[in-house]
Simulated assay, not measured.
Amino acid sequence: MSTPENTPQPGYYNLTPAQFSTEIRQPGAVLLDVRRPDEFAQGHLPDAVNIEVTAPDFAQRVAALDKAAPTYVYCRSGARSAKAAEQLAQAGFTHVTNMLGGVLDWPEPLTMR
């Protein structure tokens, strides 16, 4: 029986926050926060890039990212990031991972820098 963690979705993987925390430490990883800029300003994961998934220019902005780089996506609860992960996979990104539960379940301190 499969569990939600590590279950392949069409083109991306889901990880628990603990698994996600370990994975994002690899060299070359791109950490993508897809929440609104005001949410991002209230606290985000260190070194995250903020590109709002609901912004009209989302596809154009992510097209500037390296499609071959491991890309880790998160939001507040995991819903918007799953949508973004699917869009990234459809756009040709080869290693996309979504964090289940979002920052609501993130066990480490957030940064405001």
Rank of each mutant, 00 (worst) to 15 (best):
Met1Asp: 13
Met1Cys: 13
Ser2Met: 08
Thr3Asp: 11
Pro4Val: 06
Glu5Ala: 13
Asn6Arg: 15
Asn6Trp: 10
Asn6Thr: 14
Asn6Pro: 13
Thr7Met: 02
Thr7Leu: 03
Pro8His: 14
Pro8Val: 12
Tyr12Ile: 05
Tyr12Ala: 06
Tyr13Arg: 12
Asn14Ile: 09
Asn14Tyr: 03
Asn14Arg: 14
Thr16Asp: 05
Ala18Phe: 09
Thr22Met: 09
Arg25Glu: 14
Arg25Leu: 15
Arg25Asp: 05
Arg25Val: 05
Gln26Arg: 12
Gln26Tyr: 01
Pro27His: 03
Pro27Trp: 01
Pro27Ser: 04
Pro27Met: 08
Ala29Met: 08
Val30Pro: 05
Val30Met: 02
Val30Thr: 15
Leu31Thr: 01
Leu32Lys: 00
Leu32Phe: 00
Leu32Arg: 00
Asp33Ile: 15
Asp33Cys: 09
Asp33Val: 12
Arg35Ile: 07
Arg36Val: 03
Arg36Gln: 15
Pro37Lys: 04
Asp38Asn: 07
Asp38Trp: 13
Glu39Asp: 11
Phe40Val: 09
Phe40Asp: 14
Leu45His: 12
Pro46Lys: 12
Asp47Phe: 07
Asp47Gln: 10
Val49Gly: 02
Val49Glu: 03
Asn50Leu: 12
Val53Trp: 14
Thr54Gln: 09
Phe58Met: 12
Phe58Tyr: 15
Ala59Asn: 14
Ala59Leu: 15
Gln60Asp: 06
Gln60Glu: 07
Ala63Tyr: 03
Ala63Lys: 04
Ala64Glu: 15
Ala64Gly: 09
Ala64Pro: 05
Leu65Lys: 08
Lys67Cys: 00
Lys67Val: 00
Lys67Arg: 02
Ala68Tyr: 03
Ala68Lys: 08
Ala68Thr: 14
Ala69Arg: 10
Pro70Ser: 03
Pro70Trp: 01
Tyr72Trp: 05
Tyr72Met: 13
Tyr74Trp: 09
Tyr74Glu: 06
Tyr74Ala: 08
Gly78Arg: 00
Gly78Phe: 00
Gly78Trp: 00
Ala79Lys: 08
Ala79Pro: 08
Ser81Cys: 03
Ser81Trp: 00
Ala82Trp: 06
Ala84Ile: 01
Ala85Leu: 15
Ala85Cys: 11
Ala85Gly: 13
Glu86Lys: 02
Glu86Tyr: 10
Glu86Asn: 14
Glu86Met: 09
Gln87Asp: 03
Gln87Thr: 01
Leu88Ile: 12
Ala89Trp: 00
Ala89Cys: 01
Ala89Val: 01
Ala91Lys: 08
Ala91Arg: 06
Thr94His: 10
His95Ala: 07
Val96Gly: 02
Thr97Pro: 06
Thr97Tyr: 03
Thr97Trp: 10
Asn98Met: 04
Asn98Phe: 07
Leu100Cys: 08
Leu100Tyr: 06
Gly102Asn: 06
Gly102Pro: 01
Val103Gly: 07
Leu104Thr: 03
Asp105Arg: 04
Asp105Asn: 06
Pro107Thr: 13
Glu108Gly: 05
Glu108Arg: 01
Glu108Ile: 05
Arg113Tyr: 14
Arg113Glu: 15
Arg113Asp: 15
